[in-house]
């Protein structure tokens, strides 16, 4: 399998609102589990129930969407990877927003999911364009740093290290980190507390 994530194409789903926390993405009671299987069923469960069918995830126009378009500070709060896991299992392969909370962002990268940002005005244009025509294909080109839609070709941003790890296919970090086992031992040996501050 090629782990390189260079491009995500598909329709979008617009989820407006800022500071949407991971408790809302996946309420804590669904964390009583030892696998991530089936979490997609509970994505945004309480918000959706309260929206009585009017939540974007229940909007037929957005059925089958691959790119979730969100506001500012998306994924704040709890570190639970269950949040991006539930959205990934729902079918989303990338996120576009004004900003992402850091732990959520790191979790997305660790799952090979790009989370890219647009300035507010550009994001608003994109959201409006998708809502006008939800069936249009969006193309996120991570190498070029662009998102193409009926809103035009927009310049997206993503922290460079994370972007490169997706482009180079090293986002599943275990293998990369394991390469340096000798260096890890040397670093550990240099840290006085690792040996209990022995003389």
């Amino acid at each position: 399998m090629d782990a390189k994530v260079t491009r995500v194409a598909g329709t979008g789903c617009v989820l407006r609102g800022d500071d949407i926390d991971t408790d809302r993405i996946i309420p804590a009671r669904f964390l009583r589990c030892v696998t991530f299987d089936g979490l997609d069923e509970h994505a945004f469960e309480d918000d959706r129930r309260q929206a009585k069918g009017n939540h974007p995830l229940d909007d037929e126009r957005f059925a089958g969407a691959r790119i979730l378009v969100v506001g500012r500070n998306f994924g704040c709060g709890s570190s639970r990877e269950h949040a991006p896991q539930s959205l990934m299992r729902w079918g989303f392969q990338a996120f576009v927003g004004e900003s992402f909370a850091e732990i959520f962002f790191g979790n997305c990268v660790a799952l090979g999911l790009p989370a890219v940002t647009l300035p507010r005005a550009e994001l608003d244009r994109l959201m409006d364009a998708i809502e006008l025509d939800a069936k249009q294909e969006l193309v996120l080109d991570l190498a070029a740093g662009t998102l193409a839609s009926r809103a035009g070709v927009q310049k997206i941003a993503m922290p460079d290290g994370a972007r490169r790890s997706l482009l180079e296919g090293t986002w599943d970090a275990t293998a990369v980190l394991l390469e340096a086992q000798d260096a890890v031992q040397r670093t550990a040996a240099r840290l006085p507390y690792v040996n209990g501050f022995a003389a």
């Binding site: 990877e81 991006p84 732990i103 790191g106 660790a110 970090a173 275990t174 890890v184």
Partner: peptide, 16 residues
């Protein structure tokens, strides 16, 4: 950290 990173720390004692 998230669970994938918990795996990384368990397996390598490191994070990226």
């Amino acid at each position: 950290i998230g669970t994938s990173q918990v795996r990384d720390v368990l397996a390598t004692q490191c994070l990226a």
